[in-house]
Simulated scan of single mutants.
Amino acid sequence: MAHQAFVYTELQLSVPFDQAPWREVNRALLKQPGLRNKTWLAGLGNHSLGGLYTFDSLADATAFVTGYFPAEAARFGTAQTTRVFDATVVEEASRQMDSPHFGHRLEQRPGAFVYTEVQISVPFAEAPWRDLNPMLKRQPGILTKTWLSGYRTNSVGGFYAFTDLDSATAFAHHQFPKEAATFDAAFYTRVFDAAQVAEASRELHSPFFVS
């Protein structure tokens, strides 16, 4: 069965990743129903902790964000952000962008990740991804993008891998705001240091860190 959902999480805290209890957390995550993989996220400049997860089903993803993850955030004593995305509607668009979530094997380990979300409600079939993908492929340092379509909200976003932090930061600061402006909408961006999370992500079968 193909995976049907993505989940994005972020905790409102500041913990250098090498001090985070990721080994303990990984053991608990490996027991979560329907979890296929997780890519850990370490916030650039603020040391937030988060992740992008793949689940077998939207039901499994929803159970995770309403059960396990709020309890984990409470254990850390912090507020949280979670988002659930429908993976079934973004496959074609993501494959065009060489997404490892849909089978593409990266030849280069990423140096940075970027998460984006635009505050709109557009069924993904009506989103202009065919126009945007060629432009995205020309962005300096980009390796891949997994498109994201909000479950029950139809927000439009993405999870990108870049070769380095400079390229990721330039995209988040300069290029993506121009994209969001075409929708006449507010937006959300985050940049993460991928180099710090390779070991922890590999333990959870992240498609970005295949041995």
Score class of each variant (00 low, 15 high):
Asn46Glu: 04
Gly51Asp: 07
Ser206Pro: 09
Phe17Arg: 01
Phe187Ser: 15
Arg202Cys: 12
Asp193Leu: 14
Val156Ala: 08
Thr54Glu: 11
Pro140Leu: 08
Asp164Ile: 04
Phe159Ser: 09
Leu58Ser: 06
Ala125Val: 13
Pro70His: 04
Asp131Ile: 14
Gly158Thr: 07
Phe209Glu: 14
Thr62Leu: 02
Val7Pro: 02
Gly45Glu: 05
Val118Asn: 09
Ala125Cys: 04
Glu107Asn: 14
Trp40Thr: 05
Leu165Met: 12
Gln4Ile: 00
Trp40His: 05
Val156Thr: 07
Met1Tyr: 00
Leu13Gln: 02
Val118Leu: 12
Phe187Gln: 13
Ala79Pro: 03
Thr144Ala: 10
Ser149Met: 10
Ser206Glu: 13
Gly51Ala: 10
Glu24Thr: 11
Ala71Leu: 13
Asn133Lys: 11
Glu199Asn: 12
Phe183Met: 11
Phe55Gly: 09
Thr9Cys: 02
Phe64Lys: 04
Ala168Cys: 06
Val114Trp: 01
Leu41Gln: 10
Leu204Gln: 09
His104Trp: 07
Gln32Cys: 09
Phe171Pro: 02
Val90Arg: 01
Gln80Asn: 06
Asn154Leu: 08
Leu30Pro: 00
Met97Arg: 05
Asp193Pro: 15
Thr9Gln: 01
Gln96Asp: 10
Val15Pro: 00
Phe64Cys: 03
His47Cys: 06
Phe171Val: 06
